[in-house]
């Protein structure tokens, strides 16, 4: 039905986008693409967990015996901090390896039109 990479390409079809030749982007479109990568949910989760991981693991490295005894003899800060760093790194790697596809202004306009139509689609048959 829809050719990969063509103007009718459904939004978010990353797989097709990677195989299709990269469209030439205008400066405006390139800027939007950079923002889309920066504001992807994976970037937010990755950044948050990396920051949290660093802040939590530091007291874990310097944990006193009293702190460890409080948590049933486990250095929780160390383990949970490390876990957060791993999960955070996973999300950052994911967004770097599989960024969202670039979208041209024409495609964006087509999508916007379709969504406007969806929002105001004729109601059900009158009763």
């Amino acid at each position: 039905m829809t050719s990969a990479g063509g103007p009718e390409r459904p939004v978010g079809a990353e797989m097709e986008a990677e195989r299709a030749p990269k469209p030439v982007l205008t400066p405006e479109e390139a800027r939007n693409w950079r923002l889309a990568k920066l504001f992807d949910l994976r970037s937010f989760i990755g950044a948050l967990l990396l920051i949290f991981g660093v802040l939590v693991i530091i007291p874990g490295i310097a944990a006193s015996q009293a702190t460890i005894s409080k948590s049933a003899g486990i250095n929780l800060s160390l383990w949970i901090g490390a876990l957060m760093l791993v999960v955070g790194a996973f999300f950052v790697t994911w967004i770097l390896l599989r960024p969202p596809p670039p979208v041209t202004a024409a495609e964006m306009e087509a999508v916007r039109k379709a969504r406007e139509e969806f929002g105001t689609q004729g109601g059900p048959p009158a009763h």
């Binding site: 939004v11 937010f44 950044a47 916007r112 969504r115 929002g119 105001t120």
Partner: peptide
Amino acid sequence: FVIGIGFALRRLVQTSTDFFLSGRSLP
């Protein structure tokens, strides 16, 4: 971060479908 997400997504909300159904675009 929560408020930052709000501001980051603001420019993507152009239609009612965006506002109520995230533009039917999420994986």
